[in-house]
């Protein structure tokens, strides 16, 4: 699986409005629901579900990245969105450092294996120092898309 297969490019938020975790989650979910044209999906409910999951255990895994996610009945295929913040977001990360790059993933409840594959793809790429650095420096959606394509090419 490639990042480009799961990330919705049109929904990318290169400069997040807020630096508060819950607001960032809402902003990204809304962008995804709007741009991905997810029918019959209530963005507010979905954002709430992501926040609830986040409260159970932070997905801020360190090195300035967080991967908030939830499995939800209203989602049919795993789909992700990338958001970047120049100021940094408090995600209650494992290393207690602010988060600059957020990859938010929504997965269907019905297919846990696909969710794991999507997570594997995201983590495999976030492990790459170059990819994290490019994401951190990116200030436009185009730069983020380029970073994603470069990372995908790295694997092939």
């Amino acid at each position: 699986m490639k990042l480009a297969d799961i990330v919705c490019f049109k929904a990318i938020v290169a400069q997040l409005n807020s630096n508060k975790r819950d607001d960032v989650i809402s902003e990204l979910v809304k962008s995804l629901v709007d741009r991905q044209k997810m029918k019959g999906v209530d963005a507010k409910n979905l954002a709430k579900a992501v926040v609830k999951r986040e409260n159970e255990a932070s997905t801020g895994i360190g090195k300035g990245v967080a991967v908030p996610h939830v499995k939800h009945e209203s989602v049919t295929e795993p789909v992700a969105v990338v958001g970047c913040s120049q100021q940094g977001i408090d995600f209650a990360s494992l290393d207690k450092q602010p988060v600059y790059s957020v990859v938010l993933l929504l997965s269907p409840t019905a297919n846990p294996d696909k969710h794991l594959q999507a997570m594997e793809t995201i983590f495999k790429n976030l492990q790459k120092d170059d990819f994290r650095r490019f994401l951190r420096q990116a200030q436009t959606a185009e730069a983020i898309i380029e970073a994603i394509k470069d990372a995908d090419e790295d694997d092939s």
């Binding site: 895994i61 294996d113 794991l116 594959q117 997570m119 594997e120 983590f123 495999k124 976030l126 492990q127």
Partner: peptide, 12 residues
């Protein structure tokens, strides 16, 4: 490492 463990994609 949580990053590396998640990369295993260990399904049921």
């Amino acid at each position: 490492s949580i990053m590396q463990m998640t990369m295993l994609a260990a399904t049921c």
